[in-house]
Deep mutational scan, measured.
Amino acid sequence: MEVRTIKVFTTVDNINLHTQVVDMSMTYGQQFGPTYLDGADVTKIKPHNSHEGKTFYVLPNDDTLRVEAFEYYHTTDPSFLGRYMSALNHTKKWKYPQVNGLTSIKWADNNCYLATALLTLQQIELKFNPPALQDAYYRARAGEAANFCALILAYCNKTVGELGDVRETMSYLFQHANLDSCKRVLNVVCKTCGQQQTTLKGVEAVMYMGTLSYEQFKKGVQIPCTCGKQATKYLVQQESPFVMMSAPPAQYELKHGTFTCASEYTGNYQCGHYKHITSKETLYCIDGALLTKSSEYKGPITDVFYKENSYTTTIK
């Protein structure tokens, strides 16, 4: 009895394709271990004539594949690729409408935090270190965002349907971005203890939790000093293409032309909904596939993004 075979390709990165001759009487799992086709788990399936010449994702289970996976995804987590594939199996079914010149995501599976993050990423200057993220990001900007969303979920250790947080998501993504040249110098002034300067680099240099107003941050924000008295913390120097200011959701007025974009969060910790506000020729609110415009805006804002380049204080 002759062994019926077909020729397929296996890959971990969709760049390096490895030619395989597979036995049609055995499952993919018996031949390769966990195997995925377009995100779908085909591990328990036997090869079919229609699979001839198709590319299958496999887990990096030998040295060659491990090197290829690390170079593309910059992670050695053995569960990463499987999590990416199972997320992709959902995100490829989502709709990605162009809204006001940006790629958004039609609401499904509690994905409003991903839509808000995706919209924000198209408006701030950011370059990702893992080629996987950078490639998928370019495709997302062009309207094909399924891979990018699935990668975000995998890097953030999230599953489809789980509630997510924009600030946490951005923080994970910033860790995989090139923020080497970003720098922030802060000064804390206390009447009792004097003053202390701190220099922050990388992710810490672009994120701040405690106030939404970048102007206020430049002037000074009140913080408790270690001595128990009130101290003032203010920005001395900022070198970065953008800054992200966050605070627990509270009524906040966004003035046209003073910011790049913002995240609105309605609801409580267990259950809520994100919308995205962007400042173009007027203010726009993007909620999944829905767009509304207004000249002014007041609502429960939790993150505001500002364009920056270089700032030095005039406070002496």
Rank of each mutant, 00 (worst) to 15 (best):
S79C: 02
N268T: 14
L114S: 01
H276S: 05
F305R: 08
N89H: 07
C156I: 14
P131C: 01
Y155Q: 05
D109N: 07
M26D: 11
E204H: 14
P47D: 00
Y155W: 00
Y214Q: 06
P78M: 07
H18T: 12
A132H: 02
N178C: 15
F70D: 12
N187M: 11
G257V: 00
K298I: 15
Q175M: 12
H176Q: 10
G161F: 03
N61C: 14
N129H: 09
S181I: 07
A140T: 07
Y72H: 15
Y138M: 15
N89V: 12
P224I: 10
E204M: 09
K298V: 11
T232W: 11
E68N: 15
G164I: 08
M170Y: 03
R83M: 03
S240L: 03
T120F: 07
T43F: 07
A231K: 08
P60L: 06
S294R: 09
L291F: 10
T75G: 00
L235K: 07
C271F: 14
C182K: 02
Q238G: 04
F217C: 05
C190Q: 00
E281Y: 03
Y284W: 12
G267M: 15
H74S: 12
T260Q: 13
C271S: 04
A250T: 13
P97Y: 10
Q251K: 12
N309H: 12
Y84D: 00
G202Q: 02
L173R: 02
Y234D: 02
N111I: 04
I124N: 05
G101K: 04
E144H: 11
H176G: 01
E125I: 00
Q197F: 10
A40K: 12
T55N: 06
V189K: 09
Y113R: 00
Y284I: 14
E253P: 09
L291A: 14
L153S: 01
P47I: 01
V22T: 11
A108T: 14
H273C: 00
G299H: 07
F148M: 11
Y274C: 10
D109P: 05
R83H: 10
Y297L: 06
L290C: 14
S279E: 08
D303Q: 04
D287A: 03
C285P: 05
H276P: 02
Y137E: 02
Y137T: 01
F242C: 04
Q20S: 12
V236C: 05
T278A: 14
T75F: 05
S86T: 06
S213C: 08
N110A: 05
G101T: 01
D63A: 15
P241F: 03
D180L: 07
L254C: 04
N61F: 06
K93N: 14
G272F: 07
P97V: 09
T75C: 09
L17S: 11
D165Y: 14
T226I: 12
Y72Q: 13
T91L: 03
V3D: 06
T282K: 13
C227A: 04
N110R: 05
V203P: 14
N147P: 15
A136T: 08
Q134D: 05
C261M: 04
A205Q: 02
S294E: 14
H176A: 04
T159K: 10
F56V: 08
K293T: 12
T91F: 03
Q230V: 10
Y137W: 15
M245W: 01
H90Y: 10
S171L: 12
L291K: 07
K92P: 02
H74Y: 03
D109Y: 03
A150M: 00
T198P: 04
W94D: 01
D109E: 13
Y274G: 01
I315N: 10
L88I: 08
C271E: 15
T292N: 09
K7V: 11
K127F: 09
E2G: 07
F80I: 03
P130Y: 02
C112I: 01
T43S: 11
K229T: 05
N49P: 13
V189H: 09
N129V: 10
T19A: 07
S104Y: 00
S25C: 15
W94R: 00
N100Y: 08
E162K: 04
V8K: 03
A117D: 03
V12M: 11
H74I: 00
L179I: 05
V304Q: 07
A177W: 01
G143N: 00
T258Q: 14
R184A: 15
K316I: 10
A247V: 05
Y311W: 15
R4E: 13
L17V: 10
K316A: 15
L235S: 04
P78Q: 07
Q123V: 00
T19R: 12
D23P: 10
T278M: 14
S279D: 13
I301V: 08
T10E: 03
Q30D: 13
T55A: 13
K7G: 10
C285M: 10
Q20L: 05
K307H: 14
V206A: 06
R141G: 06
I277T: 04
P47V: 07
L179T: 02
G53T: 10
I45A: 13
G272E: 14
Q134M: 03
W94S: 01
T10S: 10
A140N: 04
R83G: 01
C261F: 05
A146I: 00
G257E: 14
H90E: 07
H176L: 12
A205C: 03
M26R: 15
E253K: 11
I286H: 06
H176K: 11
P224E: 14
D180P: 02
D23F: 09
Y138K: 13
T169H: 00
P249Y: 00
K298E: 11
L151C: 01
M245V: 12
Q98A: 11
K307T: 15
H256F: 11
P130S: 10
L59T: 13
G272H: 05
V166P: 04
N147K: 12
T198K: 13
A69T: 14
A154G: 03
T258N: 09
K233I: 15
V189M: 10
G29L: 06
K255S: 07
Y57S: 05
L290F: 11
G299T: 04
W107D: 15
Y234S: 08
N147Y: 15
